[in-house]
Amino acid sequence: MNSPLPFSSLPTWFVFIATLMLSLLSVELGYRRARKRQLRTEQEEEREKEAPVGAMVGTTLGLLAFLLAFTFGMAADAFHARKMALLEETNAVRITYRLAGVIPEPHRTDVRQILREYVEDRLHWVGLDKAQESIAATVLLDRLWAHAVAVGAQSPGGVDEFLGSVARVTEVRAERETVRERSRIPNDFWLVLYLLAILSLWSMGYHGGVAGTVRSPVMIAVAISFSLVMVLIADVDSPGHGIVNVSQQPMVDLRNWLVAESKR
């Protein structure tokens, strides 16, 4: 299995600093290599020309920018999919809770209690209620299905809408867990992205050495900018960790609504 790189297990500041150090090191090595080569070629009167090197560096940086944009697009699409899956799950649970009003007792009360426990479990799953005792969503949905089957057997064809709603809760639960746990940027993308970044930043430093300039602060600005973008992509691609996460407010609102409904 192609498990994601362990960005989610590392603090955001650590990923930033490690990426920044790698970027600065690449620039510095490229600069030193160019200066050393220029000193040698000056003695041989065959100094390397700046213009061709600049053109090649521009091409490399363009490829890096393209891959960064593509990778960020993958992370952003997955982020949007997680947000939509959350909304679909909350809507499915809310509708099922309402439709439970058409089924007979004791199934009605039991189904609504199961849905309340299910919402608590989902909040625990994303880490909002870490102190809350968790009941596996699979167990709760099995209990929900048992009630749905019993109701369907008692009233064949009379509760089709309720049965369809229960099926939808099961479906969106699987969709949400898939987009959260398995829709991640592949390791191959991260590997190619970092390798291309090292080559691009090395080439940029090399170009500065060929041009004969001192170490420009712009190189540091480029390294910092690249590191910030990489951390942002990694953060968006690590649901439940870091700074950028899908707001769980719709599920919290649903829990509050279910509590209020149970008191009526």
Rank of each mutant, 00 (worst) to 15 (best):
L115D: 07
L22E: 12
S247N: 12
V119I: 15
D160N: 14
V229T: 03
F7S: 03
M56I: 13
G242A: 11
R82L: 05
K83L: 07
V93Y: 00
Y118N: 07
L61C: 04
V111K: 08
L196F: 08
V93Q: 00
A131E: 13
G212L: 01
S134F: 01
A174Y: 11
S227L: 09
T213R: 13
T90L: 08
R143K: 14
A167C: 09
L68R: 03
G127L: 07
T178Y: 12
L196V: 15
L144H: 08
R40Y: 15
E171F: 13
R264Q: 12
V236K: 00
P186D: 08
N187F: 10
Y118F: 15
A65I: 12
S155V: 07
S238K: 00
M84W: 08
E177W: 05
L39T: 07
I220W: 09
V214C: 04
V231C: 02
A234Q: 00
A153F: 09
S262K: 07
A51T: 14
T213V: 12
K130C: 07
F189M: 01
L86N: 04
P4S: 00
L25M: 15
R98S: 13
N245K: 10
R98V: 15
L67G: 07
T138P: 00
R264D: 09
A223D: 02
T138D: 11
V231I: 04
L22T: 14
A174R: 14
E133T: 04
G209Y: 06
S183F: 11
Q113M: 10
T109P: 03
Q249Y: 02
R255I: 00
G240R: 00
V151F: 13
G73K: 06
L61G: 03
L199T: 10
N256T: 14
Q132L: 05
T109H: 13
R35D: 03
A51P: 08
E181W: 04
P239D: 03
T19F: 10
G54C: 08
M84F: 08
K36E: 11
S8A: 13
G58K: 06
L10E: 15
D110G: 11
G30Q: 11
E89T: 14
D188F: 10
E89M: 12
A223Y: 06
S238C: 02
S8T: 00
G54P: 09
V179W: 03
V27D: 09
T59W: 10
A92R: 01
S225V: 05
E133D: 04
R180P: 00
F70Q: 03
D77Q: 09
I185H: 03
E177S: 12
R143V: 09
A137K: 01
G73Y: 08
R33E: 14
M251D: 01
Y194E: 09
V57A: 10
V15G: 00
L128C: 03
A221M: 14
V169K: 07
G62F: 11
